[in-house]
């Protein structure tokens, strides 16, 4: 199951719920305002790194660029929309 998270971790519990209600190793894709969780140096970084212990995390390039976020946490993989489609080829999806 691919977990789609599109809200900022500073205002929504979507990322936490995706992490809590998901099987280990299931990937999380951050897009839209969800990409703010991918930024390095925020108060969320420690928590995001913990989640990365159980889930590979991807972040959508178009939404990162649109918001001027370039310093992302090491280990988060940037994908373009083609990469988004490839993740969906590999996994069913849940949109939080």
């Amino acid at each position: 199951m691919l977990h789609l998270v599109n809200t900022s971790p500073f205002e929504s519990s979507d990322l936490e719920s995706a992490a809590k209600y998901s099987a280990k190793d299931s990937p999380i894709l951050l897009f839209e305002d969800g990409i703010y969780a991918a930024q390095a140096g925020t108060a969320m970084e420690g928590r995001v790194k913990e989640i990365m212990g159980d889930h590979p995390i991807y972040a959508l390039k178009a939404d990162l660029e649109a918001r001027g976020i370039s310093n992302i946490i090491d280990g988060i993989t940037e994908v373009d929309y083609t990469g988004f489609v490839e993740l969906v080829e590999q996994h069913k999806t849940a949109s939080w």
């Binding site: 199951m1 209600y21 998901s22 099987a23 299931s26 069913k92 849940a94 949109s95």
Partner: peptide
Amino acid sequence: DASQVAQMMEDQKNFFI
């Protein structure tokens, strides 16, 4: 509990929230 939720999700074809 949460782990049962996670298991159910894996077993379902579609998931609408």
